[in-house]
C-alpha cells in the first residue's frame, strides 16, 4: 500500500481489499455492565459497558475504558445477562408502584444489590443490598426498604455473587491517577505564552 506512513507501508498483505467475511455472532464477545465508585463515601454508579470474553477480562478492559482520569476509588463489572431489570416508568409514575409484593419465601436467601434510575437519561445508582430467595423477592423487598418520596424510574437487581468486585489489595490500581497530568486539560495552559506573543507582535 502506498502511504506517507512507513508503518502502513509495512503492513502485511492479507485478505482482499474492501472485503471481509461477515463476522459470526459474538466475534466481538458478550457485554458486561461497568460500575464505578468515583470517590470513597459516594455510591457506585453505572458507567457503561465493555465487550469481553469473560468476567476477568471485562474487569481489566473496564479499568482501561472508564477510569483513565479524575479519581476512582473502586470498580466492578457484571455480565449483562445477570442484571434483572424492572419496567421503566415516566412522568410522575414511580416504578415501584408496578412492582408486586411477594410474600416472604422461606427457601435459602442470598444477597442482591439494588440500583435506582433517579431520572430518565441519568445513570443507575447503587442504593443498597437486600437478602432474598429470588430476584422477584429482591424487587419486592427493595420496594419496602428503598421506596421513598423521590420517584424512581427503573430498578436493577443483581445477585452479589455474580459481581467481579475490586479486591482490597487491588485498590492501589488508581493511586497514580493524579500523577497522570498529561491527560488533564489543566496541564495545557497556553495563556502566558499567548500574551507574550501578542505583546511581541504588537511591537
Amino acid at each position: 500500500m502506498n502511504s506517507l506512513d512507513p508503518r502502513v507501508i509495512r503492513l502485511p498483505d492479507i485478505g482482499e481489499v474492501g472485503r471481509i467475511n461477515p463476522k459470526p455472532a459474538l466475534d466481538q464477545f458478550g457485554t458486561y455492565e461497568v460500575f464505578v465508585l468515583p470517590k470513597e463515601g459516594k455510591p457506585f454508579q453505572h458507567e457503561g459497558i465493555v465487550h469481553a470474553p469473560n468476567l476477568e477480562m471485562a474487569y481489566v478492559l473496564a479499568k482501561e475504558t472508564f477510569t483513565r482520569r479524575f479519581t476512582c476509588a473502586s470498580l466492578y463489572v457484571v455480565n449483562t445477562l445477570d442484571v434483572f431489570v424492572s419496567p421503566l416508568s415516566e412522568g410522575n409514575q414511580n416504578v415501584y408502584d408496578q412492582i408486586p409484593q411477594i410474600l416472604n419465601q422461606n427457601s435459602a436467601k442470598v444477597n442482591y444489590e439494588i440500583y435506582h434510575l433517579p431520572k430518565r437519561g441519568k445513570q443507575h445508582v447503587h442504593v443498597g443490598r437486600v437478602s432474598a430467595s429470588s430476584p422477584e423477592e429482591a424487587f419486592s423487598i427493595a420496594k419496602e426498604q428503598f421506596q421513598k418520596e423521590k420517584i424512581v424510574y427503573n430498578v436493577w437487581v443483581i445477585q452479589s455473587t455474580a459481581i467481579r468486585y475490586t479486591m482490597n489489595e487491588e485498590k492501589d490500581l488508581w493511586l497514580t491517577l493524579p500523577e497522570k497530568k498529561f491527560r488533564d486539560a489543566a496541564e495545557y495552559k497556553g495563556g502566558e505564552k499567548l500574551k507574550e506573543f501578542l505583546k511581541k507582535s504588537k511591537r
Binding site: 459474538l26 466481538q28 464477545f29 458478550g30 459497558i49 470474553p53 469473560n54 436493577w156
Partner: peptide
Amino acid sequence: REAMKAPNQKYVSPLA
C-alpha cells in the same frame, strides 16, 4: 478473538 471466544456466551443488547 478466536482464541478468547467463550463458547457458552450468549448475546443480549447492553442495558443502557
